[in-house]
Design a protein around this nucleic acid. Sequence first.
RNA 1: GCCUUUGUAGUUCAAUGGAUAGAACAGAGCUCUUCUAAGGCUUUGAUGUAGGUUCGAUUCCUACCAGAGGCACCA
Length: 581
Amino acid sequence: MNIKDILENLIITSLLDLQIDPFVVPNINLEHPEEFSHGDFSSNIAMILSKSLSKNPREIAQNIVIEINKKLPDEIQKVEVAGSGFINFYLSDSFFENKTKQILLEKEYFGKNKKLDNQKTIIEYTDPNPFKEFHIGHLMTNAVGESISRIIESNGAEVIRACYQGDVGLHVAKTIWGVKKMIEEDPAIKKGFLGNMFGFGKDDTLWGKAYAYGAANYEENEIAKKEIMEINIKVYSKDDTEVNKIYKVGRKVSLDKFEKIYKVLGTKFNEYFFESQTTDFGKKVVEENLEKGVFEKSEGAVIFRGENYGLHTRVFISSEGLTTYEAKDLGLAKIKYDRCPYDKSIIITANEQSEYFKVLLKALELIYPDLAEKTKHISHGMLRLPSGKMSSRTGKVITGEFLLGEIKNLVLEKMKDREMGEKEKDEVSNMISVGALKYSILKQTTGKDIIFDFDKSLSFEGDSGPYLQYSYARAKSILKKAKEENLKADCNKIKTELTELEKKLYQFPEIVERAGDEYLPHHIATYLIELSSTFNSFYAKGKIVDKDDANSPYKVALTEAFSIILKNGLNLLGISAPEKM
RNA sequence: GCCUUUGUAGUUCAAUGGAUAGAACAGAGCUCUUCUAAGGCUUUGAUGUAGGUUCGAUUCCUACCAGAGGCACCA
């Protein structure tokens, strides 16, 4: 039984002994006070009961404490009444010693639970579009999705990582138009686009330029717009040899590039879905349900009248007969389920799609109510520069690779005096760059915009990924020294005072559970920063590895426990923990 | 215009309706003959406005102000 349950039972039985019905309150509220001087757990039960009992909360608290003291378990050292009626619990030395033992024993399993056991969850995130850049928005969706995946895995769920990619649609036509025009203008450039069919002689940055070129002309040039729409139809019909060829190469160039990025970011997808696979089925679903009255015809298009549900109306099949992404997404829900029957389906996107997903989920509810029930849309904020929104439509994008490259340069600059082999330096600098970026995304509540300032957001000091990684490397370095001096960890403390470190360490599993319940990775990030800060103070206070100090084995045990939890926590954020940096 | 969402130190972020609103950066001042100073210690500084609910509100409700996103054939 975990400590929270023990405390809860203790309160309930004490209330019963006092002839108070504990079930008049919905649940016993137990929280960690902000300051350790207020104990390890605190309950406001007396304050809540005060009204219904018409009694002073402090008096109620006193009575409860008297009852609790009659049956104080080993885990609790003392119980006190404080403030306006809080009951504060102070945990005992043996509780902390046992927890440290448990951490050292369970290692990478510490923090995991079985809450979502037997729950199969498919989680869709990143979703870059072939023929377009992998921009920093994708980086953000990936960071959030990967972290949520790992968190719910730690809560026991089986996770299927899915990526849905738009390999058909107007953006493809814009790119193909751009490619054709650029080759027309400069035939020599053809090789840069198409290369030899097998190698990587193809220049993937050219494809980004072609998209930007097509996109700009689509907006400004009526003739180009018409040509692009014609190409769009050909992409679907596949009856134009030249279009087919450009399409085939462009798609592969994009997908290969994406795979390289996923590898750097630490994501391995289990399933890929493509719009080219959802189009026909999506259209079929819409047409079937047009007859059933879910959709209606308007101005030549097939629409879903979201206004009837307080939402907005959207087009599912265009007046030209093309399926919009609304219809494709609708089909996707069923295709996903057919391929991997899930208990829960999570889709992660930027919050600019929040309203859209409400409409989509309403339509889904009318067609596949069981699937709609299982589906959840999670949105994150936008990564924006002080100068404004980042858009790939205008062609002015910051690509994921560019950003990671810039960060890596900063890291390498910082590492230039480190004694480390070139290969190791390269690996470690990759870990740190990705860690810095991911942390800056995950440290705040999912859903709020991130104002992205190169210098500030990616600082390597203070509240940052590298701070956590540095703390880890430091702990590992200490443990290495302990090993060299043959000092073994011992969880039984001799006569040291408890430090704040023990009081933070045991809280990790609760944090994992909460982050999973709320789908909020930032709880992990906040906890890890507090934990690391506590460890760093502990480190600064005196030597840990010291043969002349009888407490040294206990300090080594705490250091090891810290390193285990920090590594597990970083893993939940999708951040690697370097042994050295 | 309608809908959604966000307003917390100079800046970027925390705070299941609870105790003295936490950090980090920036500013001021300390700290490496000692296990990693990407560290530690000290210090200045904040809940958009006006009401309401509550024993208690940054948190819930209403209005207003300000920012962001969305609102018919792009994803």
